[in-house]
Nucleic acid binder design. Structure first.
Lengths: 105, 105
DNA sequence: TCTATGTGCAACCCTGGAGTTGCACAAGGG
DNA sequence: CCCTTGTGCAACTCCAGGGTTGCACATAGA
């Protein structure tokens, strides 16, 4: 799996994609179904789903003649934990800087 | 503080902004200093810093005649925890869907 | 088989924003 | 006091990508 974070953030940064994710979090759906509930065309939604699938946030499955998309919760959890880890590292770093500064006084 | 997540992701989604964040995570710096280490001009960096400050990821402080920017670790940690929370909610939802489906069989 | 519904694909428009250049302004240091 | 250094501001270019339209293709159902 791609471990780079910024592509995932770029995917999450668009409002429409976020709406799609939230909607899919409630219940899996096809692109056509999503197009009925969101103010964009099916083709726009298809493009967004490709982006989301590209960063591993959405899984695609065929069901009869329709294509159902569902959320990959584990991926989002993974990204969240990465963020917390980086934040913790920064905090430790800042703590180090601060102690050095105090030492210098 | 703005609790909407997608603006934060939009801010994190740009590669240059991510580089700036990582760099500032190592040590606070001014826009001019950042411009020496990154392959873009100072003005571009200034714009990125405004974006990052707008979503609360960077704090700005004057030091003499230079303006020093530093990372706001707590904000990133907050976002990370939000992500994990949403992921957990989705997992519970999916778990519920699955049990309903099994029940129906 | 014919039809309706759901997908896939390609071309196109258009705005946002990433990046640049240029200049003006402020403030220490010699 | 000048000159250097660091910021601030504004106008401009340019292109990625979000969104659209149009059409072709596949397949379940009557």
């Amino acid at each position: 799996m791609d471990t780079a974070l910024s592509p995932v953030f770029a995917a999450l940064g668009d409002d429409t994609r976020w709406s799609i994710l939230v909607r899919l979090g409630r219940e899996p759906a096809s692109a056509s179904e999503l197009a009925l509930e969101l103010p964009v065309t099916r083709q726009a939604i298809v493009k967004h789903l490709e982006v989301l699938r590209g960063v591993g946030l959405v899984r695609t499955r065929r069901s009869g003649r329709s294509v159902v998309h569902e959320v990959e919760g584990a991926r989002l959890d993974e990204v969240g934990r990465d963020l917390c880890g980086i934040a913790a590292a920064w905090d430790r770093r800042l703590e180090g800087i601060r102690s050095i500064a105090e030492e210098r006084d």
